[in-house]
């Protein structure tokens, strides 16, 4: 058994195993911290930068911070809200996110977070990304212009012998997601479904199959993102 540590989140005392991931601990205790690249159980990517919180006054990504004795964590204040909103807006202009025309509308984490952060129109100019849609593989396609480069698919979706099916290409502004066509062609329907579900936006699309649930009745159409986490918090307070 690991040592337990005590620390505070938004002023409330929390106890958790030392060295656990702060984002996971916060979530387990009913504090929702927005994040687009985090996957519980996987090594953090620390790339979307949305989960920035204040740890002892310093801004740090919760997904790469390990809990330690006596730390004081603030998950929400004006500065953090503005920071997250700006980063979300940056994502919106970096790619093409035309929600009404997107297959993922209603189950898209980016869209849901935009609603949650009350984004009306971004403060940056749209860039109208013009990357090639990768559709050569029979059952799966990549709409790269929607990709937010969270690396979830790279980290979680592997071939049977443990190789990366997805990968990055180039760097900086030209950075884009690609896939190993040979390995992608060997993916089972379940693999593809999992890759599509893991994708927080509408980049990974399973071909030849429609969505079961119509727009308007999907996950985030009913409840805002993070609601399940925060509900937990209310229960605890009762």
């Amino acid at each position: 058994m690991s040592k337990k540590v005590k620390f505070t989140i938004d002023g409330n005392e929390i106890s958790a195993e030392e060295g656990k991931n702060l984002l996971d601990v916060a979530c387990e205790n009913g504090y929702y911290i927005p994040a687009l690249c985090h996957m519980k159980g996987h090594k953090p990517a620390g790339s979307c930068r949305l989960c920035n919180v204040k740890v002892n006054g310093r801004i740090m990504t919760a997904c790469t911070t390990l809990v330690s004795e006596g730390m004081e964590v603030i998950t929400e204040d004006e500065e953090l809200a503005e920071l997250r909103k700006t980063i979300l807006e940056a994502m919106f202009v970096d790619g093409n996110h035309f929600c009404p025309a997107c297959e993922k509308s209603g189950v898209c984490d980016l869209q849901a977070l935009a609603y949650k952060h009350k984004i009306m129109s971004p403060k940056f100019k749209y860039e109208f990304s013009n990357k090639k849609v990768e559709a050569e593989v029979p059952k799966i396609m990549l709409e790269k212009n929607r990709c937010i480069l969270c690396k979830k698919c790279i980290r979680a979706i592997k071939s049977k012998d443990g190789k990366n099916i997805f990968g990055f290409k180039a760097r900086g502004k030209k950075l884009e997601i690609t896939m190993d066509e040979e390995l992608a062609a060997q993916m089972t329907d379940e693999d593809i479904q999992r890759a599509m579900d893991i994708c927080p936006v509408g980049t990974i699309i399973k071909k030849e199959k429609g969505f079961k649930i119509p727009i308007g009745k999907r996950k985030y159409d009913k409840k805002p993102i993070g609601d399940n986490v925060e509900k937990h918090k209310e229960k605890e307070k009762d």
Binding site: I87, A90, V93, F124
Partner: peptide, 21 residues
Amino acid sequence: FIDESCGSCTPCRVITTHAKN
């Protein structure tokens, strides 16, 4: 900086170009 960014963090990848504009 725009050319040399690794592209991983959203702010670095996106905002430098907008600031230059």
